[in-house]
Each structure stands twice: as structure tokens, then as C-alpha cells.
């Protein structure tokens, strides 16, 4: 459950100047695997995520999720957006239960789940708050909670902590590690932050730009459970050095 297979995926954006965002990308993600897509902006990493989410159509190639072709967005692939993208007129609670509600799930089933998840992300005291009344980090906790409540088979996270300050980002990374280590959902995590990619992922896929493709895949063998203390671990630093070299090379080639 939650396996992903990109095969020869290309994506071209039309318009005045045709841009090839992705060229022949192959990527397999196993059940319960945490994969980070790491690369500079404009390398097509978000496009790849959007295709898996069903937000964008590919130009050629195929994407399969649990062996089935993707046509539309759906609650089996929960997306966490960069700016949280909560519905601003709904309270925290209504944002979190939006998914089950529109899917027609019985209240008696989704309410206890939503309660539990709000507790996990530390927002049980903010049910009635509006998104605008929350800090960026709290908003993103809601963004994660509204997805977890649907129990998706995969989590697609598009630079979810990119807009947060360094300290909040660390606490969000720790939160995600804690949650994921319990749930073991498949995750595709897009980031341009090397530390974040290594800390979180089982495998880091370094992408290069124009055209976007995966230049190298680096398995991160740091033991689990991890925490933000691993950021200063010598083994961590070695991975970081390897990835930096790779990125510099990828950058220099273009």
C-alpha cells in the first residue's frame, strides 16, 4: 500500500516559450518509504509531486500509485502545501474535518480521529481559532492534521516548512519524525534544504534543472528513530558532504 512508480515521466509546459520541466524521470517509492526530492528551485521537483497528486497531467510516461494510473486528486494521496493553504473562513476544527465531511464519513467515526490528531500536533486548544489567528508553524500543523485525519496511503509534502523560521522548522521536523515513525506512511517530500532531506528521508533524490531529472539517489542509512540531534552527528555530516558535492556537480554541468 502506498507504492509509487514514475516511469519515463516528462512534462512540458506550453506557452510562448516551451519549458521542459521534467525529462524521462524514473522513480520508485516502496511501501512506507520516506523519499526526499532535493534540488534548486525550477528543477521540477514540485511538478513531479503535483503529477502524483493529480493536480497536473504528465506529457509522456506513466505514474502509478498502488499499480493504478492517476487521473485525479484524491484523499488516498494527502498533500501538504508550502503555505498550508487552509480554508481561511473555516476554524481549525472545520479545516481538519473537511476531508471526512465531504467524503460523507460518519461524524462518530471522524470526530475521535480528529480529536486525537489535533492532540498529536499540539493544537487541541485551538479548535475554534481561524487560520489567520495562528502562527505559520501552527497553520502548517493544521495542514498536516487535515491530511492525517484522512489516513492517506501516501503523504505528498511540497516544501511544507520552507516558509517557516529556522526554530519553528526544527520543531516541525521533529514533529514529522515522531508522527511518521509511528504511522510509517509512504512520503514524498519536496525540499531545497539539504539538512531537512537527510534528517527525514530514507532516500534522497537529488534533482538537477533544465530539464528536470533525478541526477542521483542517495540512501540515508542513519538509524531510526531519528531526532533533530542527528543534525550534528558525524555520519550526518558525511551524507551532507556527499550531497553537496553531487549538487555542485549537477549545477556545474548546466
Amino acid at each position: 500500500m502506498g507504492t509509487v512508480e514514475f516511469a519515463g515521466v516528462s512534462k512540458t509546459f506550453g506557452g510562448k516559450t516551451v519549458v521542459q520541466a521534467l525529462a524521462e524521470v524514473d522513480l520508485r517509492i516502496g511501501e512506507g518509504e520516506f523519499v526526499a526530492l532535493l534540488g534548486p528551485s525550477g528543477c521540477g521537483k514540485s511538478t513531479l509531486l503535483n503529477i502524483l497528486a493529480g493536480f497536473e497531467q504528465l506529457t509522456s510516461g506513466s505514474v502509478r500509485f498502488d499499480s493504478r494510473a492517476i487521473s485525479n486528486p484524491g484523499p488516498d494521496r494527502g498533500v501538504v502545501f508550502q503555505e498550508a493553504s487552509l480554508l481561511p473562513w473555516l476554524t481549525v476544527w472545520d479545516n481538519v474535518v473537511f476531508g471526512p465531511k465531504v467524503q460523507g464519513v460518519a461524524r462518530s467515526i471522524y470526530e475521535p480521529k480528529a480529536e486525537a490528531i489535533l492532540k498529536i500536533v499540539g493544537l487541541e486548544g485551538f479548535k475554534k481559532a481561524l487560520p489567520v489567528q495562528l502562527s505559520g508553524g501552527m497553520r502548517q500543523r493544521v495542514g498536516i492534521a487535515r491530511v492525517l485525519v484522512m489516513e492517506p496511503r501516501a503523504l505528498l509534502m511540497d516544501e511544507p516548512f520552507g516558509a517557516l523560521d529556522a526554530q519553528t522548522r526544527l520543531s516541525m521536523q521533529q514533529l514529522l519524525l515522531d508522527v511518521w515513525q509511528k504511522l510509517k506512511t509512504t512520503v514524498l517530500f519536496v525540499t531545497h534544504d539539504i539538512d531537512e532531506a537527510i534528517l527525514l528521508a530514507d532516500r534522497v533524490c537529488v534533482m538537477s534543472a533544465r530539464p528536470g531529472r533525478i541526477s542521483r539517489e542517495i540512501p540515508i542509512t542513519l538509524p531510526r528513530p531519528r531526532s533533530i540531534d542527528d543534525l550534528t552527528n558525524p555520519a550526518f555530516i558525511q551524507f551532507k558532504a556527499a550531497i553537496m558535492t553531487e549538487m555542485r556537480g549537477a549545477h556545474g554541468a548546466h
Partner: peptide, 28 residues
């Protein structure tokens, strides 16, 4: 906001639900 619509669809909202629960309140 395009992402509000994407978010609603990702959470399983039908076309009608998206109009009623996202587009209408956003246009208010």
C-alpha cells in the same frame, strides 16, 4: 486561490462540494 481548490479536491470534495464549500465562501 488555486491551492484552496486543489486542497479541497485532494480531500475528496466533488465538483459541487468544491463550488459550495470553497468557491462560494472564497468569493463572498
Amino acid at each position: 486561490d488555486k491551492n484552496w481548490i486543489r486542497a479541497a479536491q485532494m480531500m475528496g470534495a466533488s465538483q459541487a462540494a468544491t463550488l459550495w464549500r470553497v468557491v462560494l465562501p472564497a468569493a463572498m
